[in-house]
């Protein structure tokens, strides 16, 4: 790429675990290609960069930004807006940015309760009773970033060009997405319409799963750790394990059921589903062997955490998005943004 300017690249993590950054670094020898093909302008996990340098850049001067993480704090929201302004192709990268993921499950809990747990429980030493946004940080001039009433997905804050699902996205899918973006930026390839999901298939994890399915009727749910012997070739759902494969988008190659664990749904809802949890509930309801309310209740008693089962990754992007008690906090001190 001598002579001509390379496309510019940024990656940023908001409310996330950092796993998406690791997943991008974990694309094996491809990472060398990325390093050679792109000029990295911001990637806090990899190199030092200052927000003021980012602010000083001309608008739309970053060709590709992979944004991981949901929007939970003032800082998350500020960076989302700033990166949107500076970026041509803004990608909601990974489950958190796209649908809230595990951090989004905190939308079931009122923010005050979350902060009490984090800042005031017995294992926390916090003599000055610091809280996000409310008190100066004694170690420096800044403030702890403010904490919003609910976590929002990236597209609930700014326009998003593409979504790449997965917790985290799988290496081959990441490589495909980067190749596509690179080809498009070099003018050799067209991109799908704005708002599309990249790096996932149109079908379900079940479609990619090699386990045998016979008649799908289940008499009860059990937790996988409660079972002594699992048939290694039979569909997990048929064995009573609540596997989310039927309503989860393909893309991972059915990693979890292949390894002997149920799919928990990290690739997000299958294409076309409006509410992933509702789709899963329908899927489970149609296989439950129950003809009365009592029979159904007995089956459901085996599902220890229903909302976690159906909305583990997608709560923040579901139709209701948060619990009533979390929304209730939005009007007051929490609702600044």
């Amino acid at each position: 790429m001598s002579g001509e300017a390379r496309p510019t690249f940024a990656m940023y993590g908001a409310g996330s675990c950092g796993g998406c950054d690791i997943a991008v670094l974990n694309v094996h020898e491809k990472i060398l290609e990325i390093g050679a093909a792109f000029e990295v302008v911001l990637w806090p996990v990899v190199m030092d960069a200052k927000y003021r340098d980012l602010e000083a850049r001309p608008d739309s001067s970053i060709d590709l930004t992979l944004f991981s993480g949901g929007i939970r704090t003032d800082e998350n929201a500020d960076l989302a807006r700033l990166l949107r302004r500076k970026t041509k192709l803004l990608v909601a990268f990974g489950s958190c940015a796209g649908e809230g993921c595990i951090p989004g499950l905190a939308n079931l809990t009122p923010p005050a309760e979350i902060l009490d747990t984090v800042y005031e429980t017995v294992s926390t030493e916090n003599p000055d009773h610091l809280r996000p946004g409310t008190q100066p940080n004694p170690g420096g001039p800044g403030q702890l970033a403010g904490f919003a009433a609910v976590l929002r997905t990236l597209d609930q804050v700014v326009d998003v060009d593409y979504f790449v699902p997965g917790c985290p996205p799988e290496s081959p899918r990441i490589a495909e997405v980067l190749d596509l973006a690179l080809a498009a930026l070099r003018g050799g390839e067209d991109l799908p319409p704005r708002g599309a999901v990249l790096g996932a298939g149109e079908s379900t994890v079940c479609d990619e799963c090699a386990r045998t399915r016979n008649v799908k009727q289940i008499a009860g749910f059990r937790r996988i750790q409660e079972i002594d012997h699992l048939d290694p070739t039979l569909c997990l759902l048929e064995q009573g394990i609540p596997c989310n494969g039927a309503a989860t988008a393909s893309g991972c190659g059915a990693l979890c059921p292949t390894a002997g664990a149920q799919c928990v749904g990290c690739y997000g809802p299958v294409a076309g589903a409006i509410d992933g949890g509702a789709r899963l509930m329908s899927a489970f309801a149609s296989v439950a062997q129950a003809r009365t309310a009592e029979e159904m209740d007995r089956i459901l008693d085996g599902l220890v955490d229903p909302i976690g089962q159906f909305y583990r990754f997608g709560l923040a992007k579901s139709l209701l998005r948060a619990s009533r008690s979390a929304w209730a906090a939005a009007g007051g001190e929490w609702g600044r943004r």
Binding site: P165, P192, G195, P269, A271
Partner: peptide
Amino acid sequence: SPVGWPAGSRGEPE
């Protein structure tokens, strides 16, 4: 963006 992933959005580039 609508809730959920857009339908038919994962095929060949347009």
